[in-house]
């Protein structure tokens, strides 16, 4: 084990780390934004729900490497364009979160939704002001799974030459060095834990009514 390798490569490792962050965060956020209307539709329409959630499940089964290679052909992008990664991960995030959003909206008490309708909330007002806020805990739980899974899937992009923490794995393999490999794994885990904790905090702040420490 040669720890000095880390010190010698601190700057490129830092760059890979930052790359990994945005390659994970951007598709997760875009995926959530797309999944909300789709999940709402799946929740509203019984037939639509079966189709959308079924299709989402199928999307998730496409191997990531295949998607990374296929997308440039479909989109006309260059194979080294990070956009391919962003789009592929967005697809996976949507696939995961459509069901989560639909379940989250389904977790809103029926009486609450009925009351909002009878009070004269319009459809979109009910969704934005009542249903989504109440679904936050369920959606955050799904988002935690999605972002941690994205941290791991992003590493696959190293195989098509997009730099991020996965690059450390290919380097380690090519140079027959264990240190880059371990560095990559540790940093991925650290990143996943950070994202998870950040989401827990966001969920905590966004759903104060769930806290049991509110003054009684």
């Amino acid at each position: 084990m040669n720890i000095d390798w880390i010190w010698a490569n601190l700057q490129p490792i830092g760059a890979l780390f930052l790359n990994h962050i945005w390659l994970t965060v951007v598709p997760t956020v875009i995926g959530l934004v797309i999944a909300i209307p789709l999940g709402w539709w799946a929740h509203r329409s019984r037939r639509g729900g079966v189709v959308i959630i079924g299709a989402a499940g199928l999307l998730y089964t496409i191997p990531s490497l295949a998607l990374f290679i296929l997308l440039p052909a479909i989109l006309g992008t260059r194979i080294l364009d990070p956009l391919n990664i962003v789009i592929a991960l967005t697809v996976y995030t949507v696939a995961l979160l459509v069901r989560v959003v639909s379940d989250g909206l389904g977790s809103v008490p029926h009486d609450t939704v009925a009351a909002a309708e009878a009070m004269g909330y319009r459809g979109w007002q009910r969704l934005l002001l009542v249903e989504l806020p109440v679904a936050v805990p369920v959606i955050i739980a799904g988002l935690r799974v999605a972002i941690v899974s994205n941290v791991s899937i992003v590493t696959m992009a190293a195989l098509i030459g997009i730099p991020q923490l996965g690059t450390l794995f290919t380097q380690g393999f090519q140079l027959r060095l264990i240190v880059p490999l371990i560095t990559g794994i540790v940093l991925c885990v650290v990143l996943a834990v950070i994202f998870d904790q950040v989401l827990i905090r966001i969920g905590h702040v966004a759903s104060p009514w769930r806290r049991r420490d509110v003054p009684a």
Binding site: T112, G120, V130
Partner: peptide, 28 residues
């Protein structure tokens, strides 16, 4: 929608908004 806003509605189990405080439920 305009009709419903002119008619108060009370249901079984109240159907309050769980994410709003009592005063904000009333003021919603």
């Amino acid at each position: 929608v305009g009709l419903r806003r002119k008619i108060g509605y009370v249901i079984q189990h109240a159907g309050l908004f769980p994410h709003r405080t009592v005063v904000d439920n009333v003021a919603a």
